[in-house]
Write a protein that binds this DNA or RNA. Structure first.
Lengths: 200, 200, 200, 200
DNA sequence: GCTTAAGCGAGACGGTACGTCCGGTCTTAGA
DNA sequence: TCTAAGACCGGACGTACCGTCTCGCTTAAGC
């Protein structure tokens, strides 16, 4: 029930891209707090109204900008399955450590996470588009391992996935600890040790 | 490094308390984004300068307000130790679930977490004063269990604590899942299953 | 030299008028010292920025407000010339006495005079737009009288005009004496007595 | 009916002088608008309350500071009387031109005049202490000249004095013209020409 | 000479207004 | 009709001073 739905067919692709680039570069330069719609419009060479016409807030611009860049990257293909669960998880997590250390990736992602933590509406979109697909890939890899007998039947793959991923996310988001390969390796080892099927 | 340090001995305790109460009630009513220094000052019956004299930002006001209220509450005493680790962890986590559902607690805490996620300076204080003491209590309870032989020697209590706590924190902060007793119970059971000493 | 010149073509005439009316009514109610840009904006139903966009200070708002009202009124037409110089000057000065006793006229005019006395930049505009046109009208009427032989050739009309007008202005501005018809009549009589061509 | 009259006997002469010096130097450096009580107190090394205890406003401080310096200077002795009225007036006015060109004199005097123009209460004190004594000296010199037969009996010395002095004051205060010796000489010549007793 | 009450330097306090920044809406001209 | 541009109303920012107040300290007067 918006005032009037703009005609998407007539939308300027050039402006859309310019807005994304401006938003991503600005969030890296000045941070999310000082990222402004006016600033984005000015750098993109675009009128403010062109932003407000298509997005309700700077957070939504950033979310689209970020996913437009990154949506191919994703976990669409799922996690690798070499048959060795521990090795696969460690490899993926080490890659993730690298990714989260890249400032160009970190700045907008952190901004979105922080904005999502504060805004329930936004967090729904953030989770759906960024967090959930990743988590699902882990859950499915764990389920596959379970079917292959690598993991005990009583283990809930969702809980297991969260036990591996959340300590990483938390350390990164709240800066409660360092993000090292040894940390992620330990996470995998400690978790999998408990999930192995028991003789008993 | 500051322009000039105000004289803390002359500080008005009345104003300090009024500011805390105003900040906590306002953040609950209007949320963090619309929480303003002006609004706090107005509700507290205080000049804006009295806030700016003692705190650099609304986030710092809120952090002090929250910890002034809560700093006795804390984990200073450590987690209970009944000898039954699983029962103790479940009880504490269930209490935490209740706490995080209380709007009066949740609003300022979430605001601080979100602000900390975006601001490195702030997150250092947030972690030190709120997150780390809680985490340490878990780590110590786990270490005690390890010494009592309930947990295998190879387990790193810090990693173990994060595997129990972070999934909870992450679900709450990012709203990636429900916070139920059954969730926290599952976390404890799944984690501890893997940590038990093995016969082998 | 300004940061960026606003586009005068897009200016809101409605806002401009509302600002003038607010400024003039407020200066009458609370005086110049307590006249504030915020107060003007509030009464005019206008954002503060709309004032700062077009005027550098409250004094400039008032100057424009006053002259917008009064610029037709003025001495554009010159002083009356009935052939009887003394009568003409007395009539005009008596009218001026009445005018300067009207609070609606006096409040903004006095405010501008006081602000101009303190601020060289402002006084240049104040003199050019308000004082000088009036003075010029007197100078020209005196010159006409000189050509008509009513005034001696050696008299400098500018000096003569100041000798008639300045005592009046000074009494009013500094409150050094009463503004009565008999005072202005005396001024005219005393001055003209000396300017008459002598038989000698 | 003040709250409580402070005990003038215990007043600190050192502070009083320091305040005067600070006020006069500051008004010269930053102008009257940006002259602040806090600034005066800081430069004088004095508490703000020490100023508010003895003066109701910065204008009153300045008025006292200025007259404390200048009250000997004054016209207490009256104008010189050499027997040649024109010469005496020209000499005094030329000296006054010099004085009003001295920045150390001009800054506080202009500030007081401007503040007095805006504030009726203050202008009463300003006129009484600074303007009126000067004017009275002129009136008396003119009366003496009248008694000596230099000026016609019908001339009102007060009007005559204002016709000589006010054009000067007005030019200076409102910056409506230059302050030159030739201007003041012309004023004297033009005025006195009219006041001479006539044969008729 | 000792007490005590005032003035004093200092500066925190509740306020008001400043001039700036930006949010989100609206208007205009151009493509 | 969408766009670039930007004026508009509104409201919060962080700062500067206002005039009041309270704190110890110094200091002169009166006991």
């Amino acid at each position: 029930m918006d005032r009037k739905a703009p005609d998407a067919a007539r939308r300027s692709e050039r402006s859309r891209r310019a807005i994304f680039e401006a938003a991503l570069s600005l969030v890296g330069e000045v941070g999310y707090q000082r990222l402004t719609v006016e600033g984005i419009a000015a750098r993109a060479g675009v009128g403010k109204q062109t932003i407000y016409r298509w997005w309700p807030s700077k957070a939504d611009v950033l979310l689209d900008a970020f996913t437009a860049d990154a949506d191919v990257e994703g976990y669409a293909a799922g996690l690798p399955d070499s048959g060795d669960l521990a090795a696969d998880l460690k490899a993926v997590l080490r890659a993730t450590v690298d990714e989260f250390r890249d400032p160009a990736f970190q700045a907008p992602y952190r901004a979105l996470a922080a904005a999502g933590a504060a805004d329930e509406q936004l967090s729904a979109r953030f989770v759906e588009r960024l967090l959930e697909p990743g988590m699902r890939a882990y859950v499915e890899r764990l389920r596959a391992a379970q079917e292959a007998g690598e993991i005990a039947a009583w283990v809930d793959p969702r809980i297991a996935a969260e036990m591996v991923l959340s300590p990483f996310s938390q350390r990164w988001l709240m800066r409660t600890g360092e993000l090292t390969y040894s940390f992620t390796d330990s996470l995998v080892d400690t978790a999998l040790a408990g999930f192995r099927p028991r003789p008993s």
